[in-house]
Design a protein around this nucleic acid. Sequence first.
DNA 1: CAAAGGTTTTGATGCAGATCATGGTTTGCC
DNA 2: GGCAAACCATGATCTGCATCAAAACCTTTG
Lengths: 240, 240
Amino acid sequence: MFLAESCAHKQQSGVCPDCPVRARAICSALAPAELEQFASIMQTVTLAEGEALFNEGETGDYLYNLTSGAVKIYKLLPDGRRQMTGFLFPGDFIGFAVSDTYVYSAETLSEVTVCRFPRTKLERMLESYPHLHRRLFTLASRELATAQDQMLLLGRKSAKEKVASFLLSLRERAIQRGEDGNPLYVPMSRSDIADYLGLTTETVSRTVTQLKTSGAIRLLEGHRFQIKDVGELQLLAEGA
Amino acid sequence: MFLAESCAHKQQSGVCPDCPVRARAICSALAPAELEQFASIMQTVTLAEGEALFNEGETGDYLYNLTSGAVKIYKLLPDGRRQMTGFLFPGDFIGFAVSDTYVYSAETLSEVTVCRFPRTKLERMLESYPHLHRRLFTLASRELATAQDQMLLLGRKSAKEKVASFLLSLRERAIQRGEDGNPLYVPMSRSDIADYLGLTTETVSRTVTQLKTSGAIRLLEGHRFQIKDVGELQLLAEGA
DNA sequence: CAAAGGTTTTGATGCAGATCATGGTTTGCC
DNA sequence: GGCAAACCATGATCTGCATCAAAACCTTTG
C-alpha cells in the first residue's frame, strides 16, 4: 500500500484533476482499481451561486468534496444571528457529520462543482480501507487547529486585527492551493465577512476603508483585493 | 477484531479504570495483548495544580490522555492577550500536534494524572492498528463540532448568553462522564472563564451575580455551582 | 435607459462591556 | 499573628463597535 502510480501527488489535500475521485486526500492513498470503487458511488454535481448544499439539522445523507468554486458554512441562533464557521475552497470536504444530522449549514459563494458521496455507502466502503481514516484524521486535526486560531480571533482581537488576519489567512490558503494570492480573490460579501469575524457589515466596511487609506491594500475590480504591504498587515493582525 | 473481552465498554471516550491504557477511545478497540503493547510505551504522570504540560511552540514530543483532574488549553497573542480554546476532563486527549510543535499551551487546573505517550513511538505503533485512526477521527470530528459551537458563542452571543451557555456545556460534559452535573464542579477561575468566553473577569463576575440574583443558580462551597433552573439557563443561552 | 432592489459606504448616536479603581475574602508563608 | 498575593465582587467612567439613518453605487430586468 503506497502511492497510486497513476497520480504522483505532493500534497495530502487539494484537487487532483486527473483522478476519477478528485480529492487528493483520498486518491493519493489508493491504487487505481480502488479509486474506481470510490468513483462508482460518487456523483459530480454543479450548483449556482447562492444555493444551499444542506441546512443545519437535516439528515446528513451526503458528504461533499469541493472541486471548484467556494462555499460558506455557518450556524444560526434562533433569532437569526449568524456565525460563519468557515469558508471552503477546492479540495475541502464538506458535511462530515458527527451525529446523523448536519451540525451547520452550507451554501455556495459562487458557481461550484462538487463530488457528492452518499454517506452510508461511503462509510461502508471506508471500512475496507482503514488507512484512509488516517488521512481524514489529519484533515480534521488541521481544521481543528484553524478553528482554534479563529477562536483567538473572535475572542481577543480588535476589528482591525480581525480584518487584517482574515485577509492574510485567505491569502495563505490561496497560496497553499497553488495560486499566487495577490491580487486576492475575495468571493464573499461584506456581510459574510462580518458574520465570520463577529462584526457588523458597517464595521467591516469602515475597517477595509481604513486599510485602503493607510495604503496596506487596494480594491480592484471583481471581488479582488490587492495586498500592497503584507508586512503591514501582519503587524496589524497581531496588534501593532 | 471486535471489543476486547476484558473490558466491555459502552462509550468511545472516557476513562477505563480497568485497562492498562486508561483511555476508552483506544482500549475498547483492542485485544488484551495489543493493549499491553500500548501500555508498554506509556508512562503515568501526576502533576500539581497550575503546572504546565507544555507550551505553544515547543516540539510536540508527547501525547497525553487525561485520567483525573482538569486541564486548560489556550493560545496567546504577543502582547499577552489570552484565549482559552478548551477545558479538558478525564478521558480527553491532549497534544495531538498537526505540525511538529504544539499549537497551544496546556496547564493543569487541579492535581491531575495523565498517561503520557512518546509521540513518535505512538505514531509508529498506530501504523499497525489502522482501525484506531477511525476512533481518532471521530474524536477530532466531535472536537471540531464543539469548536464551531464556541465560535458561535464568541462571535455572536452576549455576556449573559455566554455565561449561561458555558455553565450548560460544563454540565452536559459532566453528565456524559457519568457524574450527575448538579451541583456542578467549576474548577476554573473567573479569569480563566473570562478568557474562554472572550470577556473580562469583571464582566464574568457581574454576570454570575445576575444569574444568582435571578435565581437561576446558587454558589456553593469549593468551586461548586448549584443550577437551580436548567430551563431558565437554556433560555438565556440562546437569547431570551 | 429607467425603475427597482440589493450591496457598500459614510455619518450620527447609543450602549454593552472594557477599563480603572477600591475593598473584602481567602490562602499561604514566615 | 501579620503580611503579601491571589481571587472575587462591585462601583464609576470610558470607548470600540453596534445601531440607526441615509446616500452612493452597482446589478438586474422590463
